[in-house]
Structure formats: C-alpha cells, structure tokens
Design a binder for these strands. Structure first.
Length: 498
RNA sequence: CGGGGUAUGGCCCAGUCCGGUUAAGGCGCCUGCUUUGGGAGCAGGAGAUCGCAAGUUCGAAUCUUGCUACCCCGACCA
C-alpha cells in the first residue's frame, strides 16, 4: 500500500536534529532559502521563499485584526529621544538596546570615501524605534478628547530595531518585522478584554494556521513587558524541548496615558486617563514555524501557510513524453487552482526528478505529485505527502478532491504531532530534584512557585529555567514552592527558553 | 559586552606553523553528447587582486597591528 521513501541522502546536506539542533536550524533556514545573513551584523535578508511565508502570515493576521475592529496606520521609524524618558519602566527596559541617529549628513573624506559631517549634528537625537508606544501615545494625545473617540483600535505593520548582542536568523535579529497593535479604552475592564481578545487571536492563529499548539498565560513580574501592568503571552514548545514566546499582548493600565497625558472627557463630564493595550507578533514566528514541524529532510510547512501547496514533477525521457504528461497535468492544475490550491508545475528540463523531489522536500511543500509514462498508461498519479514521507499511487479521477482532502489531513496531522510531542514533554513535578532533572531533560514543567522575584531568580541561576507563564485559567491548587517550600496557590510553567 | 574559534572562485575547503614559480581538490556554473519513476555520466571550459586596511620584506594567502563579519560558550534581552 503506502511506503516510506525517506532516504539517507539528505543527511549529507543537512545537519540532523540529533547531531546538533541549533546547527540543524541554521542550516535549514539557509538551505530552504528562507533567509540569509546580510553585511550588517545581526540583520538578515529575508529571501523570496521565506518572505512568501511571512506574507501569508501577515495576510491572515491582518484579516483577523480587521475582523475584530482594528484599522491599520503607520507611525514613524524615528522617535525623539526625549519621548523615551517619559515612562520610567519602559526606558529602563529598552535603553540598553537602542540604535541612535545623531547626524543627518555625510561628506566626502580625503581618501575618497565618506565620513559623518560633524557640522550636521542633530539638535535632538532620534531613536530608531525598538517599539512604538512612545511616539504613538504622543500622537494619541491629540486624537483622543472624548469618550466618543474611544475605543481607538490601531495596528501597524513595521520594522523595529533592538541592538541585540547575540542574534539568530528569525529568532532574534537586530532588525525585525512585526505588527504592533496599540489601543485606547474608556475602562480598565474594556482594555483587559481587548488584551485577552488579541491573545485568543494569536492562539487561534498559532494553532489553526501554523499548526503549533500554544499555552496561554500571563508573565511573572520579572518577565513582564517594560511599562506593562500585565503581559499575556502564548508559548510554544520546540522540538529540542525549549520554549518559545510566540506572541505577547500587554495590558498597559494608564501608564502611558499618564506619561503622555492622554485624557478623555467621560459621559459624566469628568476628565479621565485612558486605558491602554499593546500587542505584537514578529518574524520570530518564522523561526517557530521552522522548529515546530520540520525534520532531518528539511522544512515541513503547514498547508495553510505554504507558498506552494502542491508541486507536480513530470517524469519523461523524450520531449513527446513531456508533452503527453503536460497535457494531462494542465487540467489538474486548473482544477486545483479552482479550489484555491496553489500549484507549481516543475517542468524544468535542467534537473532530474530525483533532484526535484529532494529540493521540494527541503522546502517543505506539503504535497508532491509525480506523473510519468506509467501513470499515463494507467490513469494514475503518484502522490507523496511531506509530513509523513509516505507516497501512494492514486487514480486520476477527482484528484483535486483527494488533494484538497489530503491537505486538510496534513494540516491536522502536523498539529496533532506537535501536540503529542508537547504532551510527552510536559511534566508536573513536586520536588526540587525532580524539577532539576526534568528541566535538564527539556519540556514544560508545571510546578509550584511562591510568587517572589527572589525565588524566580535563584531558580533561573541554578537551572537556566524561567517562568514561561502563569496559566490564566489554571486550576487553583494549593501546594508548596518547589524551591522555597513556601505556600503556593497554583502551578506555573517553567522551561528553558529561546 | 567578556572568552574561544573562523574568514581562500557562488558553496565546501587544502595550502599558513617554517614567506619564494602558474593557489590544489570537490560541489555548483557554462558548452556538447548520452541520460531522466529518489540528488545522472563523460568530455571540454569559465571563474580568486586569498574578509578589509595599514605595516615588515627584494618578495606576503602565509609574519605584525588595527578593523569588519560569522559560529560556539557566557551575561543581557523577545
């Protein structure tokens, strides 16, 4: 019936996960043509194939934001330095990683190059945005006067810069692409509701589109966004047992409204500060996507986000045979396209089928069809699925129906597989010895914590594990802190993280 | 930002210790023929101011100094 066609050939091309997980990731991002390093430290070039995936993510998320009442806008890249000193926690959080523009002109140097023109020093230095709260809240002050102007629900797609010491393609780059939502509300309750709504949007996107199961919760005070009252997050588990924060949604309270003096007149004719939220996901999701599903043969993409969902490889010797195959393939392409499935017919004459198989596998195309003389004779087509590496020969009738169904199955299967992996690597522990062992092993560890920064810090120093989140609807369960033995009201999730 | 490593055609790399003809090999690329159901074979060909900049020397891929980028480990952070 079905047979596996996995070969060992790929091992020569790609480091295996077992051998060196981070090397595997680096190799994969480069070899699957997603991105490469650029001439500037920590900055990457996102290549067309990688960008196509990001564009799909953008388009889906953008639709979800609009469906929940948000509008897009664009705020500037540069932020006056003075804005940064207005919200104390925020400054402290970002000051150490800001790129600063000090001059606005170059001039020719004696050796034929260019140098900064010292005469063109800026009156006030500009910060390249690490995030846009400050410039946005400075702007909102003018936009908001009455309760009638609320809620203000804005999102922007932008690049931001955080001068990171250590960078990795997609996971942590000095410049990255993201969306940042910034909303203003009349009441605290409404703002919290918004924060939670977006967390659900992120969770749905991760699970239904990326096929990546996530835990939802709030951050501990130590892990909270600088300037937030509460940070909500989604956390996913990567195949090496490390957690990855995939999205955050912040309840900002009135911190920024107060810092930037954003007030509205209520129905009762009282002057009040507005309540705020901000939330974002970034190109880091690309890294999450790669690590969540891919294998030693290359990328495994969820059909819903794959730029190419089906690739068709013709098998032939002579031109006449290619013509005959093409004749059969054309209606299949049309039928698939009519169902909204993206198809590529790989009729390059310069590569052999075996090479093409390996290449599309590396690039994670969910379904591959191969059609050759044998199929023409039998009215069949060979169908291979990327997630399980199985292939089978199917009758050509209603092939588009079968493929559409298969794509759904693949989407479901990779989610299940990731979910099973997470279940197998989730532990409840009640002793320090067990805690250390499980953290070392990797995975999510549910354990009691006494709620103090001190304990959290010591645990981090001893085990490198951090509190990934405090579950939102976690069962209240009284216990003893894993480290201090003090009383705890619920378990929190620990893991080593990216 | 601290410690360690690396940089030689598009890619992987030999040569560097101990300076001395034309910088070797593999992959890829180009041309031709044969091939095409799991990364094809043969023949011919093109492609390198040896990361960048100074210095030492009759002579530098090789020695010295500075700079830049990348990788690994730590601190920091999404």
């Amino acid at each position: 019936m079905q047979r596996l066609y996995q070969t060992l050939i790929m091992a020569k091309e790609l480091t295996s996960r077992e051998e060196n997980y981070s090397q595997w990731y680096n190799d994969l991002v480069i070899k699957a043509d997603l991105a490469e390093n650029s001439a500037v430290r920590g900055s990457m070039v996102i290549k067309p194939y990688g960008f196509a995936i990001w564009e799909k993510m953008q388009s889906v998320l953008d639709g979800m934001f609009k469906d929940t009442g948000h509008q897009n806008a664009y705020f500037p890249l540069f932020i006056p330095k003075s804005f940064f000193s207005k919200e104390a926690d925020h400054v402290e959080g970002f000051a150490k990683e800001c790129a600063v523009v000090t001059h606005y002109r170059l001039k020719n140097s004696e050796d034929g190059g260019v140098v900064v023109d010292e005469d063109a020093k800026l009156e006030e230095e500009l910060i390249v945005r690490p995030t846009s709260e400050t410039i946005i809240w400075d702007t909102y002050r003018n936009w908001i006067q009455s309760y009638r102007d609320l809620p203000l629900l804005i999102n922007q797609w932008a690049n931001v810069v955080r001068w990171e010491m250590r960078t990795r393609l997609f996971l942590r780059t000095a410049e990255f692409l993201w969306q940042e939502g910034h909303t203003a509300h009349e009441t605290k309750e409404e703002a919290i509701k918004e924060t939670e709504l977006i967390l659900d949007v992120y969770g749905d996107f991760a699970e239904k589109w990326m096929g990546m199961p996530v835990l939802k919760g709030v951050k501990s005070a130590k892990e909270r966004f600088a300037g937030a009252v509460e940070t909500y997050c989604i956390e996913a588990l990567m195949q090496d047992g490390k957690a990855l924060q995939a999205g955050t949604s912040h309840f900002l309270g009135q911190n920024f409204a107060k810092a930037f003096d954003v007030k509205y007149v209520s129905k009762e004719n009282k002057l009040e500060h507005v309540w705020a939220t901000s939330w974002g996901v970034s190109t880091r999701l690309m890294g999450a996507l790669v690590m969540a599903h891919s294998d030693d043969n290359g990328l495994v993409l969820p059909p819903k986000l794959a730029p190419i969902q089906v690739v068709i490889v013709p098998i032939y010797r002579k031109q006449e045979q290619l013509d005959a195959v093409t004749e059969k393939v054309d209606p299949i392409i049309n039928a698939l396209k009519a169902k909204g499935i993206s198809v590529k017919f790989d009729d390059r004459d310069t590569y052999k089928p075996g090479f093409k198989f390996a290449e599309w596998e590396l690039k994670g195309v969910p379904v591959r069809l191969a059609i050759g003389p044998r199929d023409l004779e039998n009215g069949t087509v060979e169908v291979a699925r990327r997630d399980t590496l199985e292939k089978e020969v199917l009758q050509m009738e209603d092939i588009e129906e079968k493929i559409a169904h298969l794509l759904e199955q693949i989407q479901e299967n990779i989610f299940q597989k990731a979910l099973n992996f997470r279940d197998e690597n989730t532990f409840r522990v009640d002793s320090w010895e067990e805690f250390e062992a499980k953290i070392e092993q990797g995975g999510f560890v549910w354990a009691h914590w006494d709620g103090t920064d001190e304990t959290e810090q010591i645990i981090k120093e001893k085990t490198k594990a951090t509190i990934r989140l405090i579950p939102i609807d976690g069962k209240q369960e009284v216990g003893k802190c894993i480290y201090s033995g003090n009383v705890s009201e619920q378990r929190v999730v620990f893991a080593k993280a990216y």
